[in-house]
């Protein structure tokens, strides 16, 4: 993969096109509303979702200033992490996006976004405890993660990727999630903290 800025738009367009194709494919199948098994290309969609979540989340001023870079950290093992690493070096909101596979959970505090894999399900509370009070957006794709404190949790419904938001923990972390994103969320847990 290339990490230069020039083909960035083309790649993004390709990503978006893929995203749409997947959506169209998903729409053609008319299954009942059931949270179902993994789809093909599922992690490509999820990577695009995470990338887009960044645009609708506001970090407290100063906290996110890590030298003009945004760190997206993955904790635990993903069935397909490649689509995430494809995003490495992308520019987002004037900053460069770095994709990092964390080896030590303690490094989580240095991230702006922390993707918690389902493999961490049992050790989730300790990991969440590591970033408590820090402006780190926690993201997951495991049932029940949202209730357990992960701020944005993706799931599959009617063969479409959807997401739920735990507004309470996001608020506690000092993160502000856009109401536009909230309105798109399937479920919102807790009350979103309003304010600056």
């Amino acid at each position: 993969m290339y990490f230069s800025a020039a083909p960035y738009r083309r790649r993004l367009a390709a990503l978006a096109a893929l995203f749409l194709i997947i959506c169209l494919v998903q729409r053609e199948d008319g299954f009942a509303a059931e949270r179902s098994a993994p789809l093909s290309g599922e992690y490509q969609v999820k990577a695009a979702f995470v990338y887009n979540f960044i645009k609708f989340v506001t970090w407290p001023s100063g906290e996110a200033s890590t030298g003009g870079a945004v760190r997206l950290c993955i904790l635990g093992d993903l069935p397909d992490a490649a689509p995430f690493f494809d995003l490495n070096g992308q520019e987002i909101m004037g900053k460069r996006l770095h994709i990092v596979q964390l080896r030590e959970p303690q490094e989580a505090r240095t991230c702006q976004i922390l993707f918690l894999s389902s493999s961490l399900s049992r050790r989730l509370p300790e990991n969440l405890e590591l970033v408590r009070g820090s402006p780190v957006l926690t993201v997951g794709d495991t049932d029940g993660y949202a209730q357990r404190g992960v701020m944005i949790n993706m799931y599959i419904e009617n063969k479409r990727v959807r997401f739920e938001i735990n507004a309470e923990t996001a608020g506690q972390a000092g993160l502000r999630i856009s109401t536009k994103l909230l309105s798109l969320a399937g479920t919102v847990h807790g009350t979103p903290r309003t304010g600056k």
Binding site: L20, N52, F56, S178, K180, L184
Partner: peptide, 15 residues
């Protein structure tokens, strides 16, 4: 248009 940004981003036509 501003309200549609998220819907556009996440391809949520219905929204």
């Amino acid at each position: 248009g501003s309200q549609c940004t998220a819907a556009l981003t996440f391809n949520a036509t219905k929204d």
